[in-house]
């Protein structure tokens, strides 16, 4: 085997490796949606989570068999069979410009399920008429109807933007700090009904 032949084999092998690397790099190239996805900031319940364009502080979480929004309907919305309402109370404060919380607001579970926040009521913080103005915190609720067996290690994902275009919008992911044992306990003491009041200034 001559030296020249070995050199050619080496060049060929290197070319193949480079082609494979180019292919792999191409596979990992982010899609346009990934490039413009919301920018997430993580934090825990009980403390403000700064998502740059807004801040959110989760105050408490309630479980209920029904929710009631007097602004939308005099009747309560009962949870379906095997379901329970998870009501997350939080204060949202825009930082620099008026924002709206985009739908869906998500309640995520440890096993990878996501549940969208209710949009049939007017009063939750993700209602279209609720505008987050800079420096004026709005305290209100997000409501989710969730299967009981999916309740574990919940986190809240909230996205806000200035208009309908949500590309590169701000997003906060808040760990609600509720493990399965705590949620089981809360299920046992779930309220019959929780009233979703319109957001108030804080």
């Amino acid at each position: 085997m001559t030296r020249d032949f070995r050199r050619r084999v080496g060049v060929f092998a290197l070319s193949v490796v480079l082609l494979v690397l180019i292919g792999l790099a191409h596979q990992t190239y982010p899609t346009r949606n990934e490039l413009t996805a919301p920018i997430s900031h993580r934090g825990d319940a009980g403390a403000p989570v700064d998502a740059r364009r807004f801040a959110i502080e989760v105050d408490r979480v309630e479980l209920a068999r029904a929710v009631n929004d007097p602004e939308s309907s005099p009747d309560s919305a009962e949870a379906g069979p095997g379901l329970v309402w998870v009501v997350v109370w939080a204060t949202v404060t825009a930082t620099e410009e008026p924002l709206r919380i985009g739908n869906p607001v998500l309640l995520e579970t440890a096993d990878g399920y996501s549940f969208a926040g209710d949009t049939t009521m007017d009063s939750p913080l993700n209602g279209f008429s609720v505008v987050q103005e800079p420096g004026l915190g709005r305290y209100g609720a997000f409501a989710f109807e969730v299967p009981r067996e999916r309740l574990s290690d919940l986190s809240l994902r909230v996205t806000a933007s200035g208009d309908l275009d949500t590309r590169l919008s701000a997003q906060a992911v808040v760990d609600l700090g509720l493990d399965a044992a705590r949620l089981e306990e809360m299920l046992d003491t779930a309220a019959d009904s929780v009233e979703i009041a319109p957001p108030e200034y804080r």
């Binding site: 930082t95 620099e96 410009e97 008026p98 505008v131 103005e133 800079p134 420096g135």
Partner: peptide, 8 residues
Amino acid sequence: RGRTWTQT
């Protein structure tokens, strides 16, 4: 501070 508000 550059914060903006729309009409209420």
